[in-house]
Simulated scan of single mutants.
Amino acid sequence: MIDLYFWPTPNGKKISILLEEAAIPYKIKAINIGRGDQLTADFLKISPNGRMPAIVDHDPIGGGSPLTIFESGAIMEYLAEKSGKFWPKEPHKKYDVAQWMYWQMANQGPKMGEQGHFRRTANAGKNGDQAYALLRFDNEVHRIYGVMNLGLHKKKYLAAGEYTIADMICYPWATTWQNRNLDLNEFPNVKRWLDEIGERPAVKKAMAAGPEYREDPASVTPDEQARRSKLLTHQRAQAVPKEWS
């Protein structure tokens, strides 16, 4: 059984898509990132980066004690290896997949995340002039969709000529194109790919998960809002938790 430490964001849904596609039994352990669950002493033992997703495999490859993994790319490579699915072994195909995995983690996710951050910051109206940040990351996100459009030229899938973890890792972020100052019609290959991947039953199930974990914003008291803001805004290094001593 896999414990999946999850919150319904694109990063969380990368892993649940693969678990559903590979039919690997798993149990969701919700990590409310708005509340700060990711910064607790217990979770930092699993993910010292203080970010979800993470997994604990209680029946790991090769046996032995439970295996913990953080970082979505490493998790997906492990689960693909464990299941024997969605990551070809032939070197040309294997590294075609790998390069898209690392592209997603170094480019698509971070740049789109930063764009979202600065758009929210600008909308708040109390953080000064955000014009350069918006220009920078709007352009980067446009470039990123262009990279995918090139990668999908005359290809059904991103890598290896087949559906792989490369598609699964890129799909959840790519679905968030709305409100990103771009026209998806500029990227017809991406649009076609999104439509096709989105029709897969496992993808539909994984993408639908989430509303049951979210809280009603009206239920969060002003004191709790202030606590969360202090905890989560402008994070710096975490001290070693005293609970670890």
Results as ranks from 00 to 15, higher is better:
Ser229Tyr: 15
Gln104Val: 09
Ile2His: 07
Glu186Asn: 11
Phe118Asp: 06
Asp167Asn: 02
Lys13Ile: 01
Val147Trp: 12
Ile144Phe: 05
Val97Ala: 05
Arg120Gly: 09
Asn189Tyr: 09
Ile17Thr: 02
Asn107Lys: 03
Ala80Tyr: 12
Pro91Phe: 13
Ala80Phe: 13
Leu231Asn: 03
Ile46Asn: 00
Pro25Gly: 04
Thr176Phe: 12
Gln130Phe: 12
Lys126Pro: 01
Lys27Asn: 11
His117Pro: 06
Ser72Gly: 14
Pro60Trp: 15
Leu152Ala: 06
Glu81Met: 06
Gly151Val: 06
Tyr132Ile: 01
Lys191Leu: 05
Ile69Tyr: 15
Arg143Glu: 11
Ala98Glu: 11
Gly146Thr: 12
Tyr171Pro: 00
Ile15His: 02
Ile197Gln: 02
Trp103His: 04
Ala41Leu: 05
Asp223Trp: 12
Gln225Glu: 10
His117Lys: 13
Asn32Ser: 06
Tyr145Arg: 00
Met101Val: 13
Lys14His: 13
Val240Met: 13
Val203Trp: 06
Asn11Ile: 02
Ala174Glu: 08
Glu140Ile: 06
Leu18Trp: 07
Ala30Asp: 14
Val141Asn: 00
Gln238Phe: 15
His92Asp: 09
Lys89Pro: 02
Pro25Leu: 02
Arg119Thr: 13
Gly116Thr: 05
Tyr132Leu: 10
Lys204Ser: 00
Asn11Gly: 06
Leu158Ala: 04
Ser83Gly: 04
Gly36Val: 12
Gly84Phe: 14
Cys170Asp: 04
Met52Gln: 12
Ile2Tyr: 07
Arg35Lys: 14
Met1Gln: 05
Gly161Leu: 09
Trp103Arg: 03
Asp37Trp: 10
Lys230Ala: 13
Gly36His: 14
Trp100Gln: 00
Trp193Met: 04
Glu81Arg: 09
Tyr26Ile: 00
Met105Glu: 03
Arg214Ile: 12
Arg180Lys: 11
Pro10Asp: 08
Pro48Leu: 08
Cys170Arg: 03
Ile61Trp: 13
Asn49Trp: 14
Asp195Gly: 08
Ile169Ala: 05
Leu44Asp: 08
Asn181Leu: 11
Pro66Thr: 07
Gly125Thr: 10
Trp100Asp: 01
Glu77Ala: 13
Leu4Arg: 00
Val203Asn: 02
Arg51Lys: 14
Tyr102Gly: 01
Ala133Val: 08
Ala166Val: 04
Lys156Asp: 13
Arg236Gly: 11
Glu81Tyr: 08
Lys111Phe: 15
Met101Ile: 09
Pro8Cys: 09
Arg228Val: 10
Ile144Met: 01
Ala41Ser: 14
Glu199Met: 06
Arg228Cys: 09
Ile61Asp: 13
Asn139Arg: 11
Pro110Asn: 04
Ala106Ile: 09
Val220Gly: 02
Leu19Thr: 01
Ala41Val: 14
Gln225His: 08
Leu18Ile: 08
His58Ile: 02
Thr233Arg: 06
Thr175Pro: 03
